[in-house]
Amino acid sequence: MSDILWALFHVCVFPGGLFALGFALFLKGLDRRIVARFQRRVGPPLIQPLLDIAKLLTKETLIPRTACKSMFMMAPVIGMTGMAACAAFIPVPGVFDGMYMMGDLLVLFYLLPVPAIAIMLGGSASSSPFGAIGFSREMLIMLSYELPLLMILLTVAMITGKATGIGTADFSLLNIVQYQIHHGQFGLNPLMIPAFIAYLMFLPGTMGVPPFDIAEAETEILEGPMLEYGGPLLALFQIGTAFKTFVVLSLGVIMFFPGCLGDFWLVNLFWFMAKCLILMFFSISLLRAVTGRLRIDQAMMFYFKIPAVLAFISLVLVMIV
């Protein structure tokens, strides 16, 4: 019984649920402030993303007459719940060990594309031509970044698996964290540096920020799949995106820099949050401030040429050494 209660706590309060949502919205607010400073603007208040969602929730839901109604309503729910479940698997080093599963990294890998799939479903259900274009673009960009991601996760699992002697690969996030705490962080391991760079390149693609904001390009296809969404449904999409921000940034931290500062859980928690923030600054904010948008074909070529090759190099190095 208490197991179930604990599981609920992890899904709804920490690290998933409230904590993940609050932290991700704070990160988003900070991201907007940082980019505004780069552009010599003041930027919105830090609380703005939360206010946006609160406002959207009070608005009316409009569904296009030609849309497939059930799918149109389900898509944001699928995206949001998929990511909310993901967030509960994230171990916070020194604070929380994750939900003890053998293959939670694999579960994450399967759940990570869920928001993208939700966007595709919503876009195609909206019956808007912009949604259709957004659908095909989202699918192409997803197919391009999933390959490097798979190789990165495999590399991390293999280096842990080799060391802990479980076998060829260890997909337990807890073991990955424990191994790094005792044997040095992967981000400082020369074998893993290409994989880390590839992960940095994966982040803007999966978060849909420039130069990879192709599926929702406002000036080309008017937000594409998001065009017909408004009110609470759009708010659900934004909550889903917030969870996703938390999941992908935390995954980056726990795979490459999970180190702790001491034994006190509060210090470790803040240290973890600070690392997420630094990761976001380099892979999302800075990139958003200094780049324009690529075309979908250019983005695909980029992912197949650079992150995929970098991740492959790490994979091969880890297999050989």
Binding site: P210, G292, R293
Partner: peptide, 12 residues
């Protein structure tokens, strides 16, 4: 620049 999605250059 704005149409290229390059907001900073647009502002600049």
């Amino acid at each position: 620049a704005h149409l290229c999605g390059f907001e900073s250059l647009f502002m600049h």
